[in-house]
């Protein structure tokens, strides 16, 4: 077996390693874009719509791939396969870890693919003075501000007092970490409000339901919950629903998914904070195009703002357009 194994191994390696014939290429007139979100979910799917619109507007080509689960172990092999294509000029990506994705994305840059990060960032997100400066730009929500908006809105509903709880995803993910941080800062503005805990559901909706249910039992007078992203809000909302506490426990949902909006209509969720993933996707492509054309003053950091959706304005077309709706779903 072993002799045959060695022979076949060598054969496979040789086969894999054959240097392809060089294809003479003129510099193409337009850049080719790669889009690699963090994980498959409606937020990124709406972002993809923005990317695709911009790509169509500029007459470009795009290659899109979704990791099935969140994390560098899954995102990196996909990233490397995209880079191995050899035909991409720009990569628009949401790094699944601000530290761990530095080396793989640096390698992508070394291979000649420029990086724009959307939604999440590398290092501390400051691409001017921070530890990581190689990406062209970071386009995302101001997540600290998003957290503060959530806290203030919750305080308003609760009359500035009560116990609150955070459903978070993973520590180490820049965006959700900052939302949690912003929320805490916001709550601190109200002396009669108390944060009773923060749990990490590892971006798993079932875990989120479990943790929230446990918290509802442990803290009977819990007044409000902040779900920091799609799955966290889904879990928190559904746990409250399952416990029959709709209206008694206020849930602030970050991210305007169909589920969050349904919960809003059902009265489970008090407020939905919508990011603008569509704008992030569109802007990222526009920045890539600008860089290609030689623009040198591309902002290193752009925040895309929020829309706050509640039961009153949810049917207003001007607000409803911020709901993450993926055609065909």
């Amino acid at each position: 077996m072993s002799k045959r194994f060695v022979t076949l191994l060598i054969l496979s390696l040789v086969l894999l390693s054959i240097v392809p014939f060089a294809v003479a290429q003129d510099a193409p007139a337009k850049p080719k874009i790669g889009f690699l979100p963090g994980v498959v979910d409606p937020f990124y799917q709406v972002m993809e719509i923005g990317v695709n619109e911009a790509v169509a507007d500029f007459g470009l080509e795009v290659v899109t791939q979704y990791p099935q689960t969140w994390g560098p172990s899954v995102q990196t092999p996909i990233l490397e396969a995209m880079i191995a294509r050899g035909d991409l000029d720009y990569l628009i990506t949401a790094p699944t870890d601000k530290e761990q994705m530095i080396a793989p994305l640096q390698a992508a840059l070394d291979a000649g693919v420029k990086i724009i990060t959307v939604d999440t960032f590398l290092g501390d997100g400051d691409y001017v003075n921070g530890p990581v400066t190689f990406p062209i730009s970071y386009i995302g929500s101001d997540n600290i501000e998003g957290g503060r908006i959530a806290a203030r809105a919750l305080a308003e509903v609760l009359g500035g007092k009560g116990k609150v709880y955070i459903q978070n995803t993973n520590v180490g993910v820049s965006t959700t970490e900052q939302r949690g941080q912003g929320f805490k800062e916001g709550i601190a503005e109200f002396p009669d409000m108390e944060l009773v805990g923060e749990d990490y559901n590892l971006d798993d909706a079932n875990t989120s339901v479990e943790q929230t249910a446990a918290k509802l039992q442990a803290v009977p007078d819990l007044a409000g919950i902040f779900g920091v992203n799609v799955f966290s809000a889904y879990g928190a909302g559904n746990a409250v629903k399952a416990a029959g506490l709709e209206g008694k426990v206020q849930v602030i949902a970050f991210d305007a998914t169909a589920d969050a909006i349904q919960n809003l209509r059902d009265g489970v969720v008090t407020l939905v904070i919508a990011q603008k993933p569509h704008d992030m996707g569109y802007l990222a492509v526009a920045f890539a195009m600008a860089d290609w054309r030689g623009v040198t003053s591309i902002p290193k950091h752009v925040t895309t703002g929020y829309a706050v959706i509640n039961a009153e304005n949810v049917d207003d077309p001007e607000v409803a357009k911020f709901i993450y709706q993926v055609p065909g779903q």
């Binding site: 240097v19 392809p20 191995a84």
Partner: peptide, 23 residues
């Protein structure tokens, strides 16, 4: 499918695959 722009059998890709199988 890439109109000849993209090659699967490249040195880089072979190393990518080896890195990907490591864990």
């Amino acid at each position: 499918t890439s109109g000849g722009d993209v090659n699967f059998l490249t040195v880089r890709n072979s190393q990518n695959i080896l890195m990907a199988i490591t864990p």
